[in-house]
Every structure is written in C-alpha cells, then in structure tokens.
Design a protein around this nucleic acid. Structure first.
Lengths: 338, 338
DNA sequence: TATATCTGCGCAAACGCTTGCGTAATCTGG
DNA sequence: CCAGATTACGCAAGCGTTTGCGCAGATATA
C-alpha cells in the first residue's frame, strides 16, 4: 500500500504530475474528461493533497491567524465563531493565538508569522499595546492585518469596530435620564482606542447634561477580586455615586458584588449598565441593562475583509473602517424605582 | 535584498545548508562555536524558517487541531485557553474548527486532517456523533486523537473527562436533601457519553432515595427559545416539579425564564442546579448553585497528553482515562426557603 | 494551403528545509 | 605510535506540490 500522492495518481493514469495538479485545481488548461478521470481516481484512492507541500509550492497557506487577548470574555468567543464561519466557508483554516493582554507575547506571535505560516491576520490588540512596530513589520512583509474591536490607531488598514463612543453616550444618557446624578465609569487600559472612545462618549453625555465630574474613571485590571475591591473602595469613598457604566463584560461581576458588599441595591441605590454579550444578562440579579456589540458579525466582517484582500494577489487591503452598531437593551438594572 | 533563507545563511557563513539547519535545531552534531555564529547571523538577518518547508521536510507540522462543537458555551472558551496555554509553551500552533454539533461537518474536518496538516487532534465530539468511523480512520493514519469532555466510548484512546455521573449524583442528592420531591433533568443529545453518564448519576441518586420517576429527562436542542418553551410546557404539564437539574450551561437561561414565565419562584417553588462555568453564576437572580467543571485544566491536560504522545515518534498514546472532578457550589437557587 | 489561434498536456525547475550517510580531522587509551 | 572512537561538518536525495514555458495536434482565419 503505497502512499497516495500526486505522483501515484499520475502513474496510474499515465499522466504527468503537473496535469494532475492542475486537474485538481480545476484549471482551464485541462480537458473536462481528464479532470473527470483524475477526480474519480482521487476519490477512489482517498487522495488528500499534502497541505504543506501545497503551501510551499504556491506560497499561500490558506490559513489565517486570529490573535486576541483572551477568550474568557464572551465577546471574543462569539467573534471567533464569526471568523471561523467565513473561513470554513471559503476553505481557510484558522490558527488561534492568545496574547493574555501582554505586548511581548503579541510581538513574539506576530514576529513568528514572518515564517509564511499564515496568509493574513485578524487581530484585537492587547491592553499593553502602545508600540505597533511589530504590526507594521508584519505588514511590510506583505501579510495583511485586519483589526476588529480593539484597533491600533496609527495603523492604516481595514478595521471593524462598533460605535463605541456613541454607544457609551447612549448608555450614559440613559443613566442620566433615569435620574442618576453622579456617575462612574469602569475601564480597562486607557491605551486602547476603544477605551478612549468609550470614555469620550461618556464625557460628551455628561457635558451635554451640564455635569462636570473628575476622577470618575476607574482603571481596572485583570483580576476580578481586585477589581471588586477597587469599585467597592470608590463607592465607599464617594457615597453619592448612583450610576455605574462598565465598559467590559467582565467588570459587571465586580460592580454587582461591590454593590452587594456595601448593601447598595441595584437599581434602587445604584444603576448599572454594562457592555455585555452573554445571554445571561437577562437572568442576572437584577437583569442587566446592556450594550451589546454585534460580536459574531464583527468577526465575520473582519474575516470577510481579510479574505477578500487575500483573493487579489496584489493584496489591496483598503483602509476602510467598518462600524457595526451596538444595541442598548434596557433591563432592570437601570429601571427607575421610587 | 535577497530573501533570507537557510541557503543565504549558508553562503554568508561558508557552511552547508545542512549544518545551518542542524545548528538551528541545536543538534549535537554541530560545534558550539558554529552554532553561536549561525544564531547570531540568523538574528541579525531576522531569519525566520519557513514553516511549510520545515513541515514538509520533517513530516511534522508542530500544529494541533482543536475540534469542538461551539464556543458559545463558556466551557469550551475556557478549555481553549487551557489547550492554547500548553501548546504555546511547547512551541505548538493551534488550529480551531467548529462542528456546530453536526456530524457531517465533523467528518469533513477530520477527513481533511489526512493531509498531514496537523500532528494530532484534541476534540470533543458533536451531539450528532454516533458513528465514529471518521475518527478511527484518522487514527489509522497515525494521527493521535485525545478526547476531552465529550468522548466517543468505542474509541480506545486517551480522554480527559470530569466525574459526570458523580457530579450529577451529588447535585441530585443536594436537591433531594433540600426537600425536592419531583425532579426533572435537562439534557442534550443522548448519544453523548457525558449525557448518559449524567443521567446515570441522576438516576442513581433518585434510586437511593427511593424515588422512581418516568419521563423526567427533557431533551433540549440548540435554540434557547425553543428550549424555554419545552421546559415551560413540562412544568405546566406536571405542576409537582420542584427541582431542575440542568446538564448544560446554556440551559440555565431556559430554566430560569420558564420559571419566570410561569411565576414559579426560584428557589421557593422550584430549585435549580446546573452545570455552569461562567463567573456570572454568582450574580444571577437568584445566584445559581453550580456544578463547575475544571474546564481550563481539562483543556490543559488533554493537550499535555497529546503533546507527550507526539514527542515519541512511535506515538504511543496510552488509552488512559483522566478524570478531573467538578465542584458543586451551593448558592441561592437551591437554598431552602420556608 | 499557409498562418495564426486554441486546447490539452508534459518537462523540469523551483519552494526551503530535513536527514541518512559519508568522511576528514581530532581525540582516546593501551 | 596506531587502531578505534569521537567530533564536526558536507553531500545529495528527498518531502509533495506548483507553475512557467514549451510543444504537439486540432481548429479557425484569410
């Protein structure tokens, strides 16, 4: 039982390997009948073209990389679904890499992509990513990069984001309309463009309502317990706070638990709105008013843009900026009570 | 500016390509000083070995595949983290494929692995997977497969599971101890070994408490709304039900919402325990008594077993069965009230 | 009928790396 | 001082595809 490769097929059919190769690629250079015969034998012998030989020969790997900070957050889980869906549909493979929010890891990972392992990259930068030389270097090697959600401002490429500023603006307005007077915003790394955007929307809403506050952005980290402490301390230090807007799904837990620890009732004493994508929002205690990003669609769109660029050998990735709106869903955590 | 490949290095250093190759692999055949020189030049020229050429030459891709049903569930999100962690640490790459619970897709995906694209597979079978010929076929080609969570019973390979029967047994006992008299279990595909295990643990607990019930397993599907209806109908049809044990994270929502729709109070009228891994369990309404699987560790362990097997060229994957226990965390959804 | 255009296929050189084997040169012990 | 072991490296044949180019024979154009 010999290995079944293209040579084997060629011998059995008395054809050359190049004809087999082209037949399998459905090349116009090969006659219909020959193609037919090749396909039949290939199926019969259960021929599977060697992926690495193809990639080496053609200098294209039919593989894309997804580089993200984590998959704890349901946002990224959903986004992966979207990316995988379009990749699978177009015969692409998806490599996944986690940076754990660390710039150094992100650099190492991208650097390794210069090996030709992937044709393109879909990524969301880490919270530490200030310098972007590693991304530029990769692009300089001809590997297209598409951002989704967390983009690097100074890189001129396609990006898929949500209307961060606008969404936060709406969420903040919502809180203010529900009689909140003193707000606080929970954020992560301020390096991130999305964090800045969200803060901006927040500030704009406050300004339009004639409210001026200071020190009202709490910078949280990765550890839920520590974040909870942070929120608790803030709420204790400034008893007037009656509204929390959380810019990350993970921080909802900290907000809820901090309130619980201080015997602050949601929404009675404090109202909460959060960026949140998990379905559990509806069954939280109380159910959570959410800003939910179209995570699946964002992943899908980002992958689509990348694959479209990969189709052209010239790799013309237009620096377009696709914005998919988030939706505000009002639930009990901001429902006015008394 | 020529392409920098192994040949280029060889020319610059007046060495042969084989020496370069071996030096980069830190082979014992190469002298320390030579290695040093090679590494220095490689770094200086920013040399990155071509991944596909390496794979082709060595017949090893340093890549593993993760094949799972979905990533909606936080279980799989966490498991991916675990898998990626050990893969990254050992210089392996992770390809991800979603079967969307469909057998046919699973078959196609595994079939494609015969192309040598991956060295091994870590997988959790789809809900439809009854026949396992496609998995056997892959193993016959010398590609090791490790199961995690959802395993195929009839395949003799390494698997990492949790103590499904025991956990459900404990969860059920917990409900019964809290005065529940009539239980119902929410399940998905009964083909799955884990479903059967969980049902078995449930039945055993009932039996030990001298309770015999029938038609007390509700087979749910993928659609949350439909599942909610299903649960609602069941609760309506049999008003005596005062305990629900859900074997899947996703079904918690359906259970909670069905109860809400029928104005059944949790835990007063109905007590609920569920397999659940997300941190949101603590802030649900009411907070949820959970059986949480060590998802991260399971992924980590599965990947470790696979990579260990890949180290030996003889690929000796012992058919061991690693069981990592889940933990029952009691919260308000089962806390006795009146 | 001679010339140009297709059609369908084969030749052979990449693609960039790995690895079995061979072989000088150096080292070891008796 | 010499046989055998050891060290450090080179040769060259793969690994399995892809693809530019060439070339017959068939068909179309003038």
């Amino acid at each position: 039982m010999d290995k079944v490769n293209i040579k084997r097929l060629a011998e059995e059919l008395k054809l050359s390997t190049s004809t087999i190769s082209r037949a399998l690629q459905d090349s116009y250079q090969i006659g219909a009948e020959t193609k037919q015969r090749v396909l039949e034998l290939a199926k019969k012998l259960n021929y599977q073209p060697n992926a690495h030989a193809s990639s080496l020969g053609s200098r294209r790997s039919k593989t894309i990389a997804v580089v993200i900070p984590e998959v704890f957050d349901s946002y990224f889980a959903l986004a992966i679904n979207g990316i995988e869906a379009v990749a699978q549909a177009r015969g692409y493979h998806v490599l996944i890499y986690l940076t754990h929010e660390r710039l150094q890891l992100e650099q190492e990972i991208l650097h390794a992509f210069q090996s030709g392992r992937v044709d393109g990259v879909v990524m969301s930068v880490s919270a530490e990513t200030t310098s972007t030389a590693h991304i530029q270097a990769l692009r300089a090697q001809g590997v297209p990069v598409v951002f989704f959600d967390r983009a690097a401002d100074d890189i001129d490429t396609a990006r898929v984001t949500t209307n961060d500023a606008e969404s936060t603006y709406q969420g903040t307005c919502h809180l203010l309309e529900r009689q909140c007077t003193t707000l606080v915003l929970l954020s992560i790394s301020r390096h991130l463009s999305i964090s800045r955007q969200r803060i901006e929307g927040y500030r704009r809403a406050l300004a339009e309502h004639g409210i001026s506050q200071r020190d009202d952005v709490i910078d949280c980290g990765q550890d839920p317990e520590a974040n909870c402490e942070l929120v608790k301390n803030t709420l204790e230090a400034r008893p007037g706070i009656d509204g929390i807007i959380s810019t990350v799904e993970m921080l909802t837990e900290s907000a809820y638990q901090a309130c619980a620890a201080l015997h602050l009732r949601i929404p009675h004493d404090v109202k909460v709105v959060s960026f949140y994508n998990a379905r559990s929002a509806a069954i939280l205690n109380p159910s959570l008013t959410t800003i939910s990003q179209p995570a699946f669609e964002m992943g899908k769109t980002a992958a689509t843009l990348l694959l479209k660029a990969l189709r052209n050998p010239k790799s013309t990735l237009v620096a377009e900026n696709v914005v998919l709106p988030s939706v505000l869903t009002i639930r009990n955590s901001t429902t006015f009570v008394g």
